[in-house]
């Protein structure tokens, strides 16, 4: 474990908690894409299959449980909570996210480190995580008005992946056999997807104006 990875995990945890807090306190999911949340629940479900088979550390197991419970809770809130579901704008959240699942799965079948069920599911979860934010970014572009919590949520998600890139660089130089091209390229693609959001987020923060994404 290194400081970049710990900071990345904490930022990732913060992003999920910010979202849960928003939905739980103001009982609203306005501006949140259910599709992105469903994709994240699928990412964790397919990535943490080894939750009970490979014990790595208490931290690792605890964090996996937190991410699984929180991501499925968010999906539950938006779909089934009697008050929250009313604020879900399904007419705007129209990204065909199922079109993301199949290509990621097919790619995982072709490009993976080992052709085993667990490894293919793990690789699938990496590719899916890289594109999971797309429905949310499309929704932000469409609704144009970004409330602070949603902006913070997307910012923290991007920051977590950026910190992970620093973690991979650090591990590459400190651990001789640490080479995971699939993880690195997938993580880089994911971070690049946030780049334009970051740009507008910083612009709005610097000029102290409301965050607006160009149409």
């Amino acid at each position: 474990m290194n400081i970049f990875r710990l900071a990345g995990d904490m930022t990732h945890l913060a992003s999920v908690l910010v979202l849960l807090l928003k939905i739980h306190t103001i009982k609203s999911c306005a501006g949140i894409s259910l599709k992105t949340q469903e994709l994240y629940a699928l990412v964790f479900a397919t990535r943490y299959l080894d939750l009970f088979t490979d014990y790595i550390s208490l931290y690792n197991t605890l964090m996996k449980l937190i991410f699984l419970v929180s991501s499925f809770s968010i999906v539950w809130y938006i779909r089934h909570h009697k008050i929250v579901r009313r604020s879900y704008d399904k007419d705007q959240d129209t990204f065909r996210h199922y079109f993301l699942v199949l290509p990621c799965f097919l790619l995982a079948l072709v490009i993976n480190e080992k052709f085993t069920v667990k490894e293919i599911m793990w690789t699938f979860s990496l590719y899916l995580e890289a594109v999971a934010i797309l429905p949310q970014l499309v929704l932000l572009q469409r609704t144009r008005n970004i409330d602070n919590l949603t902006g913070q949520y997307v910012f923290l998600l991007g920051a977590y992946r950026s910190l992970y890139i620093l973690n991979w660089i650090y591990r590459y130089f400190t651990e001789p056999h640490y080479v995971h091209w699939i993880t690195w390229i997938s993580g880089l693609v994911q971070t690049l997807l946030y780049a334009d959001f970051f740009y507008y987020y910083f612009q709005s923060w610097k000029n102290n104006v409301k965050l607006e994404l160009p149409a």
Binding site: R5, D50, D54, I56, E119, Y164, T183
Partner: peptide, 10 residues
């Protein structure tokens, strides 16, 4: 046991 192919990152 963290053998070679176990992914130790979240």
């Amino acid at each position: 046991s963290v053998d070679g192919d176990v992914h130790d990152e979240l």
